[in-house]
Simulated scan of single mutants.
Amino acid sequence: MARRYPALQEAHREFIAAQQMFFVATAACDGHINLSPKGLDSLRVLDASRVAWLNHTGSGNETAAHVQRDGRMTLMFCAFEGDPLILRLYGRARAVHQQDADWEEMLALFPPMAGARQLFVLDIELVQTSCGFGVPLYDFRGQRELLPAWAEKKGRQGLEDYWREKNVLSLDGLDTDIMALNLGEKASS
């Protein structure tokens, strides 16, 4: 049975800390809904009502475009081992970019990793648990090192070039403002 909570309980925090993967869902008022799996050491519980996650450079930048326009975000965690459980965090998110005053402070919460392009801070409005009886059991074998190695090899200039090529617009043509918010560059439109 699903249960609702106004904030994270200690058991929820312990569950989150034990997870190797979570999912992020966002949407603008229309267009595509984005749902992405996240791994690596990229999530921190800040307090009972806030979490932060570090977003690494990837093939798209949908979350950034959606959060600028709407802010709604859902994080989902699933127990793939042990007792079944699904935990969802619903709320409003804000992005923290490299040009923001709190970037360095927030980035320091995570281990150094090439390719960090923004952080998201989710203000939790609702926590929901459900049974997870239908979630299959999996054995965790390790995090993939491909993304950090790819970003390291690209280097700072290579990542900035990649952002210009692949991360400035969402699937629906929404501007992500990544260059202005990370590097202070004006939009080219």
Rank of each mutant, 00 (worst) to 15 (best):
F110V: 13
R117F: 04
F110N: 11
V121R: 02
H97S: 14
P111Q: 08
R72H: 13
F80E: 13
F110H: 03
P111E: 06
G91V: 01
D102C: 10
Q118P: 00
L109D: 09
A79K: 04
L85N: 03
C78E: 15
L89H: 01
R88Q: 13
W103A: 02
A116T: 14
R94C: 10
R72Y: 15
V96D: 08
R92H: 11
Q99E: 12
C78N: 14
P112H: 06
G82M: 04
M76N: 10
F110Q: 07
M76Q: 13
R88E: 07
Q99N: 03
Y90M: 09
M76D: 06
Q118T: 08
A95C: 15
L75G: 08
D83W: 04
R117Y: 01
Q98W: 06
Y90H: 15
D100P: 07
L75A: 07
P84H: 09
P84S: 14
R88M: 10
G115V: 06
F120T: 04
M76W: 02
M106R: 14
R117L: 08
Q118F: 14
E105I: 04
D83N: 08
E105Y: 03
D70Y: 04
L107T: 05
A93N: 11
M76E: 05
F110R: 04
A114D: 15
Y90F: 15
D100L: 05
A116G: 13
F120R: 02
M113K: 02
L87V: 05
G71R: 12
L87Q: 05
R88H: 06
F80H: 15
A93Q: 12
L85K: 12
M106I: 14
V96H: 08
A93D: 10
G71Q: 04
W103R: 01
I86W: 00
V96T: 14
R94A: 07
R88K: 14
R117E: 14
R94S: 09
A114M: 03
A101V: 13
L85Y: 00
G91C: 07
E104N: 13
A116S: 15
R72F: 10
E81T: 15
M106H: 11
P84E: 13
M73W: 00
